[in-house]
Amino acid sequence: MNARPWLKIVSVLVGLFLTVPTLVVIPMSFSSSQTFRFPPQGWSLQWYERLFTSPEWSTAILNSLQVGLLTTLLATTLGTAAALGLAMLGSRARGLATGFLLSPIIIPNILIALVVFSAFLRLSLTGTLFGIALAHTAIALPFVVIAVTARLQGMDASLQKAGTSLGAGPLSVFRKITLPLALPGVLSGAVLAFITSFDEVVISLFLQSPTTLTLPVQMFNSVTVQIDPTISAASSLMVVLVSGPILLAQVIGARRGKAGRQ
């Protein structure tokens, strides 16, 4: 291609700016020192040991997993149903309903946190894992709707018609044709929902109580309230758990997309 050398250099530099900085958490997590000095002076596994054995960190991990799974269940169910519903609407109603369902993406999280906090205070849902999961469901819902809708739009509508013309009722068309074909979208929606919840800080911070600290909140407190280098091990864990599945899905998706085009 006729790209100028400077253009390539700038693109590579921007690419490095996007990817490299976060990687420092991995060497940091094996540091032997109590400070955040980088590069580390010596090596140890003490922060990983603390992450998995100290009560405050292991409880936080368990809390995050519980909230994440509950959010995934709720958001995937509601979102998949909604996406199927959207696909059946006329284009005008579909546009309106889609806009409404996706609106939590555009609203700043701080505003969602404020709104949810004041409402949950009255419903005594603050300081409960269930309350956090409910709030996370609202922000995870759009990702499920988008993932499932994208899948449904790529679907060949004549398959459903063929099923119907061969005598299948609407329910068995749904169960035997629509749902299996939509499944990859549902699964990727579920992964996105889990990650959205597992990584969410602001809302969990607002709704926190000493017994409902999620992992990101514990990490937040470990640099703002006290200085606890365990955050470096937690960060590495997060990078592996959060970025890993997404990047894998990206690579698989890109490969499948390419195969489809050929």
Partner: peptide, 17 residues
């Protein structure tokens, strides 16, 4: 993929880094 990396890296890990 590269441009989406920060979007899909943990917010806390990224800021700690």
């Amino acid at each position: 993929t590269v441009v989406l990396v920060p979007f899909w890296t943990s917010m806390m890990a990224r800021n700690f880094a």
